[in-house]
Amino acid sequence: MQKRDVYSHYSDMASDDLKNVQKIGFILIPGFALMSYASAVEPLRAANLLAGRDIYALSAHVVEGNAGMTSSGIPVPAAPLPGRGSGFHTVFVCAGGTPVDWNVPAVLACLRQLARDGVRIGGISGGPYLMAAAGLLEDRDFTIHWEHASALVEAFPGLAPRQARYVLDGNRITCGGGVAPLDMMHALISERMGSDFARRVSDWYLHTQVESSGAPQRASLAERYGVNHPGLLMVLEKMEATIEAPLDRQAMAKLAGLSPRHLDRLFSSQMGSSFLLEYRKLRLDHARRLLQQSPLSISEIAFATGFSSGGHFARSYRAAFGESPRAHRQPGSFERP
């Protein structure tokens, strides 16, 4: 009786939508994050419960086997990859880990075929990288998890991901992963069923603070660094934006309207560090991600992170991480030296 009452409450508002079931598929790449997947699937399941009937039909798919393995080692039952004429409304590809794990030709071919069939294609967390590899993001507005953004730009120089929680661009949907799919699904359910219904779904999961598409993926600079001086924050922001071509201390101080000595004092008092040490740490952390996630050679990574030579880069890297750049690169992940 309760289900019928809920259904009748919404049937006048969205009768056509409630009569039609949208097939939503999820292609799972081994090592995908369970949190990202659950954040996308659970709102759709709750929508079915609140509607009193299935308005979404959900399925998971893998290249081989009968389950997708999450990064935490939990298997998710799955069917083979969808083929032509499978009747899907939307198919998301969910990926985690690093791009070296995402070179799955069968998935790329599947995504291209689905796109040709008019299926809306989505990517969650690292999923947009596979969409890019399949050629589905040309001239599109899109996002990707911030950790994978630099690797995507290096692999596909013509593409520029936006730092947003999720992006809806017609028949292409991309999302940063983590809990961001909760916000994305709120938008998609609202688009189909209305904002009141979508709010009820979000309330089901205590998701009271629904973020907009353009909300940031990461905490603010002030929160990440634990500082609040506007001049220092300006310099830290510029540091993150100039990893490939670092600016010197004098130029940074001038940008923030500070003297070099005042800038030194701010780094010492608020961060317990120095301008040079923090800048080098940012660049080496970025280099570490590129070693794990991009096909760039070690020499190319050195120049992409502002080091004048491969030798200087290798010495700095070993001092910071206790091993050489070559040792940090995953065995067999990339062919170039």
Rank of each mutant, 00 (worst) to 15 (best):
R289S: 15
Q217F: 01
T208L: 15
E42G: 01
A251F: 01
Y317F: 15
D141P: 00
A287Y: 05
P230Q: 07
R315G: 00
L232M: 09
G311Y: 13
L137N: 02
R224Y: 02
A79G: 06
A33T: 15
F275G: 06
S333Y: 05
L206F: 12
H61F: 01
M271R: 04
M239P: 00
I189L: 03
V100Y: 13
R280I: 03
G135K: 05
G194R: 06
R192N: 08
L263G: 10
E138Y: 03
R4F: 12
T70N: 10
E237V: 02
D54G: 12
Q113E: 15
G87N: 08
A241D: 12
Y317K: 10
F92T: 06
L290F: 09
P30S: 04
M185Q: 15
E237H: 13
P337S: 12
F313P: 06
E335I: 14
L276R: 14
A320W: 06
H312W: 02
V235E: 03
M193P: 03
V21Y: 02
A115T: 11
V167S: 04
A320K: 15
H9W: 07
G226W: 08
M69N: 12
Y56E: 01
R140G: 05
S333L: 04
Q22G: 05
P161A: 04
R261S: 11
F307V: 05
D5P: 00
V41G: 05
G68P: 13
R329T: 10
L182G: 02
E244Q: 15
A46D: 09
D169G: 03
L282D: 13
R315E: 12
S195A: 15
R218P: 00
P337N: 12
P157M: 08
G214A: 14
A134E: 10
R199G: 09
S71V: 04
S150H: 07
S308K: 15
L282H: 11
H186R: 11
R280A: 12
R162A: 14
S71M: 11
V93A: 05
M239F: 14
I144A: 03
A180G: 00
